[in-house]
Simulated scan of single mutants.
Amino acid sequence: MTALRVEGLSVRYGSLQALDDVSFAVDGGEILGVIGPNGAGKSSSFAAVTNVVRRSGRVLLRGADTDGVPTQVLARRGLRRTFQQNSFFGGLTVLENAMTAFQVERGTGLGGAIVTPWREARARRECRAAARALLADFGIAERHHDTRPDDLPYGLQRVLSVALAHGPGADVLLVDEPAAGVGGDDMRALADLLRELRERGLAIVLIEHHMDLVMEIVDRLLVIDRGETIAYGPPAEVQRDPRVLEAYLGRTA
């Protein structure tokens, strides 16, 4: 079954039509790339899919309609996303940030902490162990666990953003410009990470401006310009499309 299917997605901000009848699908074990000029509507598509903004059209998660489902509930169902800018709890360590990804599922809440403190202590131990395992799984060494996220090398911050979004087990991961501000070995590490997640069966939708990275790792490509789909298909085929060359690369074929 298709992991995520989007049909006729449209978003309007006042008089601005940010998205107009955009459709795409992504299966488990696949990376779908989304490209387009600045302001094309790429990030709006992520906001719409996760019900952060009002939208029309259908979004199906593993065949189930998500209309009206709160963003946090979608996250618990496995639909998660990263953001263009790193979003960490600045006062917490790397490990504590990772623990927050598990506390909703493992925590007992304030009442439980008062009435059954031993359960809260056990839940916290389990949460800490799960967070350590998550960080190790994403190649974030233990020596970084007590560091504040903003003190990490920037490339590792981007990896941490993906790890926190993935959390206890994403099914569909929307990744918004993970390679922004990185290059060289850091970009190679991100490419390898995304490939590995794909091999695990994760469905990934990737917004990215680094075309070398996009063309190297995506299975299919969606091009949006001014809120509309102008091309959708295999990367090599899309790359030759005259509309893409004109809209995205700024020249005609």
Rank of each mutant, 00 (worst) to 15 (best):
P178G: 02
S44G: 00
G167E: 10
T2V: 14
R148C: 12
G201K: 08
A165W: 12
A75E: 11
V73I: 10
G201D: 04
D219E: 14
D176H: 04
T147N: 10
I35F: 02
D241R: 01
E237Y: 11
N38H: 03
V26S: 01
I204S: 11
A170V: 05
A189H: 06
L206W: 09
V223Y: 11
L19S: 00
D27V: 00
Q84A: 01
R200F: 07
R54D: 09
V175L: 03
V104A: 11
E142R: 13
F88G: 06
H145T: 13
T66W: 02
V34N: 04
I114L: 15
V34I: 07
R12M: 01
A75K: 11
R125F: 12
L134M: 15
I204P: 11
V205F: 13
L152V: 15
G14K: 10
V218W: 04
V11N: 04
R81D: 10
G250N: 13
G155P: 12
P117F: 08
L173C: 02
V59L: 02
D151Q: 13
A47R: 05
G183H: 03
V223E: 13
V49D: 00
E208N: 01
G29D: 01
D150G: 14
R132G: 07
G8H: 14
V244D: 02
A253W: 12
A163Y: 08
Q17D: 07
A98T: 05
G181W: 05
